[in-house]
Design a protein around this nucleic acid. Structure first.
Ligand SMILES: [Mn+2]
Ligand SMILES: [Mn+2]
Ligand SMILES: [Mn+2]
Ligand SMILES: [Mn+2]
Lengths: 219, 219
DNA sequence: TAATTTTTTTTGATTAGTCTAAATTTATTT
DNA sequence: AAATAAATTTAGACTAATCAAAAAAAATTA
């Protein structure tokens, strides 16, 4: 049996391993989970002893097949609960992350199976993230960050990189929601900020940091 | 903030205090929560220091107003989740208790408010137990245990005292579900077991222990 | 290469919850 | 009232998860 804490570590390691950056190192894990490096080291030893991660002193860790399966199962739970909260309980997409963070740990395959059926087997969560199937299979959609687009491109918002309430609330208020079609009107070379055309009438300025965290697909 | 364990203790103390029996003593709490008396004592001290219970050495404990409010809130969560599992996810009434035991600890007033609305503000859970309102107000329905009925009585099953899977599965298999009308055909004086008339054709023998745990109302 | 900085691990403590065994208090018998 | 039994608390130890401070290793810089 895994504790809630251990499950959160696995999920964190999974996500860090997916990123292009330095990988799941002691410090980055500590930063993401808002804990201290010393705590991480001791947890890594525990996870290694349970054969959930590959751990070698001073090295970034990676998940074993077993650990990856666990991580994907929790991510599946998380995203299905988010879908439930948004589409059944009428929450906004910026309100559901913390709740799903707790619900994901209720461990029952049957519960998740029934929930999945009840929701109509959704493939994506409210933030555009793919929901792994019961076997942990996950589709990687070919989306690119808005910042990689050129002037004149017309694209559709298909996801976000950042899930904080502040960021999602901002997008919601500006009308930058999933499925929204936008056109890049102008890119300011100095700071790489963008002027977006939301519709015939309105345009919107966004910083580079914003464009880094919005994922789009070709319209 | 209360831990999951502390919430379970409060709920347990609430239920034991409601019963006609000896009340919430160290040993009974230990028995219900499947822990040891020593553990209970140390937890009682902690709950007392948080002003959640009245505790005096060697005496049965009782909830403070604050403690009672907490307990009723958790019971509300529990019963709403049970209702959800049965009426939305198609679980049977004998499958939901353990899941609700976990879901009840996801602490969010907004979540419960939305869930309540989504379910259509149910007043009773799948076992016939009343769901406390958001303020902790709870109706006490006037049901009596089947064992107190006399030969010839016609009654309707309105609840159960015992929530174990074994007991509920037994009732389900025998067709003794909520709302079922039954007539007491015969009471065996020797062991107080009953012969119940389920319909024109079929009757069923049940032990005294069974009749103690079925709650009924007059038909 | 040597010095410095950063990262990671170790050490020793803390808190929550639990347990066994022993001590104490309360209740029941004789 | 004394002896016995039952219930409860205390004492001491354990695991899981955490932290601060110190030590050690790795990476960087000079
Ligand atoms: Mn979580
Ligand atoms: Mn999401
Ligand atoms: Mn519980
Ligand atoms: Mn119930």
């Amino acid at each position: 049996m895994l504790s809630q804490t251990q499950e959160n570590y696995l999920k964190c390691i999974y996500k860090l391993s997916e990123e292009i950056t330095e990988g799941a190192t002691t410090n980055t894990i500590a930063e993401v989970l808002k804990t201290k490096a010393a705590s991480v080291t001791s947890m890594l030893k525990k996870l290694a002893s349970k054969k959930l991660i590959h751990y070698e002193k001073y090295q970034a860790v990676s998940l074993t097949a077993k650990g990856k399966k666990e991580a994907l199962s929790i991510i599946r739970n998380h995203r299905l609960w988010e879908y439930f909260l948004v589409h059944k309980l009428n929450f906004n997409w910026d309100e559901v992350h913390d709740l799903a963070e707790e619900l994901e740990h209720v461990n029952s395959d049957l519960l998740i199976k029934r929930l999945d059926m009840f929701l109509g087997f959704p493939k994506f969560d409210p933030h555009g993230d793919p929901i792994p199937d019961p076997n942990g299979k996950i589709v990687h959609l070919k989306a690119l960050p808005l910042c990689e687009c050129k002037t004149g491109d017309s694209v559709i918002i298909s996801g976000v990189c950042e899930h904080s309430t502040e960021f999602l609330t901002y997008l919601k208020e500006k009308g930058l929601t999933l499925g929204k079609k936008i056109t890049i009107e102008q890119i300011i070379p100095f700071d790489s900020s963008m002027k977006l055309l939301l519709n015939k009438k309105t345009s919107l300025f966004v910083s580079y940091k914003i464009t880094q965290n919005i994922l789009v697909q070709w319209a």
